[in-house]
């Protein structure tokens, strides 16, 4: 599953970047992230309650930040496993100054395994897109 999105944020890249590598901000922006515990540099254990509406699954996993080139780009990796199966994804986020704000281009590649993909494939892409949109919506609010 591959997704690309372009988002406009009302803050310069440096501020956006700083927010993106801040675990507290990350936790607030990643839908369903209930706890982010730092385990190493740029690596966190996470409890996720991922899903939509009635359908939710609990996952335990990690959030990692790699390829950091402040304030231009970095890659965010999320991995989780739980009773419904697993989620794995990485998102390359590229930040470019645009006037007083930032244009963020997000290239994401994700994989969902287990019961969710077996019964919910028709909604997976759209749900992933919705979660990605919400991530940047919340990020926009954080940096405003």
């Amino acid at each position: 599953m591959k997704l690309t999105g372009t988002y406009r944020l009302a803050a310069p890249p440096a501020r956006v970047f700083a927010a993106l590598v801040d675990p507290d901000v990350l936790q607030r922006c990643i839908e369903g992230a209930e706890r982010l515990v730092r385990t190493a540099d740029d690596q966190y254990d996470v409890h996720l309650r991922l899903g939509i509406g009635t359908v939710k699954g609990a996952y335990v996993g990690t959030v990692r930040l790699t390829d950091q080139q402040p304030p231009d780009r970095f890659t965010l990796h999320v991995e989780g496993k739980g009773a419904p199966g697993f989620v794995r994804g990485s998102a390359r986020i590229q930040l470019t100054a645009a006037g007083a704000g930032t244009v963020a281009i997000c290239d994401a590649d994700g994989q969902v395994g287990g019961v969710v993909s077996a019964v919910g494939s028709r909604l997976l892409d759209a749900t992933a897109r919705m979660l990605m949109d919400r991530f940047f919506e919340r990020l926009g609010a954080e940096v405003r």
Partner: peptide, 14 residues
């Protein structure tokens, strides 16, 4: 199956 080998037709819904 998708390219990762996930079975997408796992129930009568699909």
């Amino acid at each position: 199956y998708d390219e990762n080998g996930q079975l997408l037709t796992g129930e009568f819904t699909d």
